[in-house]
Design a protein around this nucleic acid. Sequence first.
DNA 1: CATGAATGAGTCTTCATTCAT
DNA 2: GATGAATGAAGACTCATTCAT
Lengths: 207, 207, 207, 207
Amino acid sequence: MAEIRLSRRERERLRHRKEILEAALELFSEKGFHNVSMLEIAKKAEFATGTLYKFFENKEDLYKALVLEQSEKFHNALGQAIEKPDDEVEKLRNFVRAKGEVFRANVSMIRLYFAETRGASFNIMAGLDRDIRERYGHFLETLASVFARGMEKKRFQEIADPYYLAVAIENLTNAFLFLWLEAPDQHPYPDDPDIILNILFKGLLDQ
Amino acid sequence: MAEIRLSRRERERLRHRKEILEAALELFSEKGFHNVSMLEIAKKAEFATGTLYKFFENKEDLYKALVLEQSEKFHNALGQAIEKPDDEVEKLRNFVRAKGEVFRANVSMIRLYFAETRGASFNIMAGLDRDIRERYGHFLETLASVFARGMEKKRFQEIADPYYLAVAIENLTNAFLFLWLEAPDQHPYPDDPDIILNILFKGLLDQ
Amino acid sequence: MAEIRLSRRERERLRHRKEILEAALELFSEKGFHNVSMLEIAKKAEFATGTLYKFFENKEDLYKALVLEQSEKFHNALGQAIEKPDDEVEKLRNFVRAKGEVFRANVSMIRLYFAETRGASFNIMAGLDRDIRERYGHFLETLASVFARGMEKKRFQEIADPYYLAVAIENLTNAFLFLWLEAPDQHPYPDDPDIILNILFKGLLDQ
Amino acid sequence: MAEIRLSRRERERLRHRKEILEAALELFSEKGFHNVSMLEIAKKAEFATGTLYKFFENKEDLYKALVLEQSEKFHNALGQAIEKPDDEVEKLRNFVRAKGEVFRANVSMIRLYFAETRGASFNIMAGLDRDIRERYGHFLETLASVFARGMEKKRFQEIADPYYLAVAIENLTNAFLFLWLEAPDQHPYPDDPDIILNILFKGLLDQ
DNA sequence: CATGAATGAGTCTTCATTCAT
DNA sequence: GATGAATGAAGACTCATTCAT
């Protein structure tokens, strides 16, 4: 009985926390950290300002939590895409596909993500940077290992340092996502991953 | 006579304007738009706050002017690099080299540039976005035409839409600049442009 | 039966009330009225905030109750000390001794007491002031009457208005208590009351 | 010319600072630190809130400056009173007189003074406490030396430790000031210092 | 009675901008 | 043009108090 009651409260709390984060995500991704006020978030989430502070120490903390949770969701999805025991080429295709799916399903997450992995956030949020960048760095290493393995297996030519290839594919997909974000109709993120991957797979100069 | 006197004033004025923009560049690139105050800029430029308002309508205007001038300098340099009547491959090499040079000579410009071309600045500065993005879009078209011409001349394989290839090389170089910015020793921006370009030139899957 | 049950409830209630007041005393005496939050008191007393409001109308009311109860305890002890049918000199000695005892046993009560009898609390708590000051005033009168009686009985010289002498001894003992509070080792409150009382008993200028 | 101009600005600045401190003194002494808002002070001083922050880092800093300046004024006056090369008895008389004069001329300073030397302010303002208490401690030592010298010269009986006598006279005068503050008509601070000093000079028990 | 989540008025503080000198 | 003191709107954050469970 007591357990259920606690459970109910706990569940309510979590739901409210989630509601706040959702409101915050929408606002931050649209206007950026400094152009969103706590009052604005509170109103959008249909709470009083004070309530936000029951869930998050301060504005920065709220933002941090938001970015961390989003980036976790994001990296999990991408991690899975390349961890499946496929052939290396297939892994890259999975990666490109998964990235498109995750982002298209969570549009507002994108800007947040770029604002954080890209230098945009400067050192505004020193602590956050560390966590996020670490995770990001780790992901890049994993991606690099796909290229390295592909080379070992003579599946790939050794055209560049695997790490740089990982950086390249990461950025290539980002670039396409940006194009799509700015003009979804003009530049759709391709369903066929090879449209992006051919830039890596096939060389400009090869016969 | 009067003309010379005016000229002198005019020169002084321009010098002061430049001093303010230089102070602003350093501060904005280091801390971001919202974390720099007008007083801070004034002090760094050794003027009073009021003086800044003789040169710029408001903080946003100052920032806008800064970004516009920097991006002009930047696009001019890159424009020249690919406008020289070289062979297409050489044009791309020039582009990669020039980008490295410009950025390495103006480190603080980089963050500003990324913050603005990338989504970081959101629509904080609606007006600015338009101008900058337009110029940027135009530059991409020019770059794309290099790939298009190369294909026409059968110098390049038709591995992807020239525009996407332009986007790709833009982002590839950016990515390398980021790596360098974060860890100059570990990831130097390569002197040999082919280290970057091989990712485009040679294909992973080609024999 | 019903009576016992009520009684039990009543006892519980009183115990809880006491627990809250104890927590509050410790906190208020340490940090002052404005630097203690209801949540803090609630946590220390191991109750929820709402519970405090079942016992006290508001924060001020809680504080008021606390100060009143403490001052009552305090004045009772001192009242007894001078009401015993001793010789006047002995009464004063008793007073000095009792004051030391009460305070040393209730250190945290001291600051509260001084904060309230002394002007510290300003008119923050208008209502409280009246009650406390009245009781305090009454006590001073009683103390003054000891001096007056001593003079009547020619036990004391008529060196000053008895009321002023009462004020004097009150403040003298307070001063010693303060010294002790700040540096217990350097300035112990004397066991022998005459160390304090000689300042009144013996004159500086007498032979 | 330039000097005069600077001078004028500087003088204006100091005058404004003084005006703020005067407004603050009146409010703080009347309602206590926590019951006065910066807006309130600003309005009373006829400035905008922001202006206060040009002169003082924050509310605490403003309060601190106020208390320090007041206590300096106060201790200077009392220091002079006992430094004149008078006979010891006369020094004490001077002290009692001076204290009455200073306080009667600066009524609002009193509460501030007591709030700070007495425990009322708790550890709200740790840093301040130290400075003030040090000065206060030093003053007590000086006062004690008057008693010590008086004893050496056989002008005073050795009825108690000179330091305790200093504490005693300090508190005795404070007590009378309090009485006066609460009921100026009923308990005027005596013009003749001996009314207070006789409590020390003449003994209750001596013949 | 007990709980503790939610409230929102009230404060401190910052900073872009103005304007008299 | 240059100055920098003054402004005051805006925003982050706190905490006494309420109320549904």
